[in-house]
């Protein structure tokens, strides 16, 4: 038994066309840039936006009004009812589904206990911190025993300090949940930590899906590559060399044939002021386009054929005294380059 959704929403000039499968107990993250249609997909699953078909555990949800769908939603800014206490918020869904007042309150109290907020049962949402409000929202969504849990940017409203803690907490609760979970985020770290599987959306379509490790290792679009911090190119392989679509030729360790993606981390690239002696393979001239300082490394954006990101140590930075426009040579170790065929969702 699982969830299968074919979401089709057309609004103005935007078109959402997403097929989604979620296994029971699985957490799927919809990841994508702003405007990719993540929240629209979530609303379509909940029934808040009409469009497409949803089957859960063999039952068709098409035409089922929102309030009859066994869903729990954690909204982006939680939307806790401001005129009710935390306990009343959590009990609301149970009351709405016909549970008697005393039983609903007792169940709500148990949920607040589970999320560690028993002491705040009588607090109004206004009096709760961001992390506490998020946990109340989660308890409210789970209290009705939904088959499908939807979370819209559940951590976006939190400050960095709270976020680490709440993320770990949320991960634990999602692990205990036996239904289907779909969560929407634009933060790759949230997605990697919380989800069993990532579905990448761009412009209303799925461009890639897979486990976090697969996606991180083999990005299929610039957006994903940027997210996971890899250099990514498309090209055509002939044995040990790949002719890149955007210009340039790379030598690779794994021989292949046909259209491929080529990916490698910025740390695999070295920079030299002159062409290195002996002229190793995968050497090409580049010019500095920009320099970003990170915690332990410096990331350099370079124009050339192909353009590339390189991570260099602070010592190298001192040697090279980089300025935009400087001409350098880039050298790439072939052993760190991965090639994989262009297939499936990423084929476009």
């Amino acid at each position: 038994m699982s969830l299968r959704a074919e979401l089709r929403v057309v609004r103005d000039r935007f078109r959402l066309d997403v097929d989604l499968d979620v296994a029971p107990g699985e957490v799927v993250a919809l990841l994508g840039p702003n405007g990719a249609g993540k929240t629209t997909a979530l609303r379509a699953l909940a029934g808040l936006t009409p469009g497409g078909r949803v089957r859960v555990d063999g039952a068709a949800w098409d035409g089922l009004p929102v309030r009859r769908r066994p869903v729990g939603v954690v909204f982006q800014d939680y939307l806790l009812f401001p005129t009710m206490s935390a306990l009343e918020n959590v009990a609301f869904g149970l009351r709405a589904r016909g549970v008697r007042r005393a039983a609903a309150r007792a169940e709500a109290a148990r949920w607040l206990e589970r999320v560690g907020l028993a002491a705040h049962a009588e607090s109004r949402p206004r009096a709760l911190s961001g992390g506490q409000a998020q946990r109340v929202a989660l308890a409210r969504a789970l209290a009705t025993g939904p088959r499908l849990l939807l979370l819209d940017e559940p951590l976006a409203a939190l400050d960095a300090g709270t976020r680490v803690h709440v993320r770990a907490e949320l991960s634990r609760h999602l692990g205990e949940f036996t239904g289907h979970t779909v969560l929407v985020t634009h933060d790759p770290l949230d997605a990697m930590v919380l989800a069993d599987r990532l579905v990448i959306l761009e412009r209303g379509r799925v461009v890639q899906e897979g486990t976090p490790a697969e996606v991180a290792r083999t990005p299929r679009t610039d957006y994903v590559a940027h997210l996971v911090g890899l250099n990514l190119y498309r090209g055509v392989a002939e044995g040990g060399t790949v002719r890149l679509d955007g210009g340039g030729v790379l030598t690779v360790a794994e021989p292949a044939d046909g259209p491929v993606h080529v990916a490698f981390p910025p740390a695999a690239v070295s920079l030299f002021p002159q062409a290195p002696a002996g002229s190793p393979r995968n050497t090409w001239p580049v010019t500095v386009a920009g320099v970003e300082q990170h915690a332990h490394t410096t990331r350099v954006r370079l124009d050339g054929a192909p353009p590339v990101l390189a991570d260099i140590t602070t010592a190298t930075l001192a040697d090279l005294r980089l300025r935009p426009g400087d001409a350098l040579w880039a050298v790439l170790k072939a052993t760190e380059v991965r090639t994989y065929p262009i297939t499936g969702a990423g084929g476009g």
Binding site: A46, L48, P65, V66, R67, R68, R69, V71, G72, V73, F75, L79, F81, F92, G93, A96, R97, R140, A141, T144
Partner: peptide, 8 residues
């Protein structure tokens, strides 16, 4: 909408 998702 939040209330509707809670079954109200």
């Amino acid at each position: 909408e939040a209330a509707a998702t809670l079954g109200a």
